[in-house]
């Protein structure tokens, strides 16, 4: 058991995965000597060599496309996309090749490739460094999408993603990179594709993932001061979504607010609202509400505090849901 940041937990997950399986490779821009711009791969090249921790040319499609080829040769590449907004040159390879090749081969080839993407905002960055494109990937059959919210999940979910035989898009909440938490390496990890009730409550369920889990926990704390009991579900996995856990929660609380940084329109929350409405129609006291980004490009950083769902906007939606 140890206290560590999400960055350190991810680093340990990569290290332990590489230790336990010689076929695991790390590749991406600046992942070698520099250790990645967020230092997630710090020290790995020194310990595992340039053959397994590969500084790539600056070409995202090339990174993912060659990872596909390496996977076909029997390797398990873990690729780093430096920032969310830079994944799009690789989108073609991810969607048309990585996601579909297993089905195309009628199951004869496997593509155990993990694409790590530091995503979402809140760090005062320039354009393309703060985006939340997860719905664009969760929409694609053949990909799995997950997003940890804390160091323990960061460690175990990355290890599980690497150990699995499917391509996984791994969304890392970059503004929580330096949050600390307990990591139990000798524990039994939760299933990768299960949600977790992060805080129990009775009046309303807040569902979130990645960076927004912390905001929702704070909102639940604030609401408790006003005599309201909010349950917080950390979704953890976006493809598949663990609707069973969410359904159980909503059947108890009868109200659901989904929170994410990504634009609300056709976002993860839209799918969750539709499915939970279908599953829990007779339990719901209010429509499922969503809090998220607007249908506008991610704003310049001086405006991101207003753009991002914070405590006030989450509580505002809680108020609206409870007012029905």
């Amino acid at each position: 058991m140890a206290q560590m940041t999400i960055v350190k937990a991810l680093n340990e997950a990569l290290r332990d995965s590489m230790d336990s399986d010689p076929k695991v490779l790390v590749m991406g821009e600046d992942v070698g000597k520099l250790g990645g711009v967020f230092r997630v791969t710090d020290g790995l090249q020194k310990d595992f060599g340039e053959d397994r921790v590969i500084d790539t040319p600056l070409a995202e499609s090339g990174i993912v496309g060659t990872a596909v080829g390496l996977a076909l040769r029997g390797y398990r590449p873990v690729v780093e996309i430096q920032f969310d907004g830079f994944v799009f040159p690789a989108y073609d390879q991810i969607v048309t090749q990585l996601a579909k090749m297993h089905a195309r081969s009628l199951g004869k080839v496997k593509l155990p490739v993990v694409v790590r993407i530091p995503f979402a905002g809140g760090i005062g960055a320039v354009e393309h460094h703060s985006e939340s494109p997860e719905a664009l990937f969760a929409h694609v059959a053949g990909l799995k999408c997950v997003s940890p919210s804390n160091p323990a999940d960061a460690y175990w979910m990355l290890r599980q993603a690497i150990a699995g035989d499917d391509p996984v898009i791994f969304f890392e909440p970059k503004r929580r990179y330096w949050d600390k938490g307990e990591v139990h390496k000798d524990g039994v990890p939760q299933d990768l594709h299960r949600a977790r009730v992060a805080r129990e409550g009775t009046d309303l369920t807040l569902a979130a993932y990645g960076p927004m889990v912390k905001v929702c926990l704070e909102a639940a704390e604030a609401a408790a001061g006003e005599g309201r009991s909010l349950e917080v579900v950390d979704l953890r996995t976006l493809s598949p979504v663990d609707f069973d856990t969410l359904q159980k929660s909503v059947e108890k609380t009868r109200r659901l607010v989904v929170v994410h940084e990504a634009p609300v329109f056709l976002g993860t929350g839209a799918e969750i609202a539709a499915r939970i409405t279908e599953r829990c129609f007779y339990h719901l006291e209010a429509p499922v509400l969503r809090v998220g980004g607007f249908h506008a490009p991610y704003p310049p950083s001086r405006l991101e505090e207003e753009y991002l769902p914070g405590l006030d906007r989450v509580l505002d939606s809680v108020d609206r849901a409870l007012a029905f």
Binding site: S61, G62, V64, G65, T66, A67, V68, G69, L70, A71, L72, R73, G74, Y75, D92, Q93, T96, Q97, M101, R104, S105, K108, V109
Partner: peptide, 26 residues
């Protein structure tokens, strides 16, 4: 693909050149 070392036909133009490169790196 592995029984004859002949990968599946690729329809998206040019994608397979990267797969070949990755495979060759392996």
């Amino acid at each position: 693909p592995n029984s004859n070392n002949f990968h599946l036909y690729t329809i998206v133009i040019g994608s397979q050149t990267l797969h070949a490169t990755g495979y060759a790196m392996g």
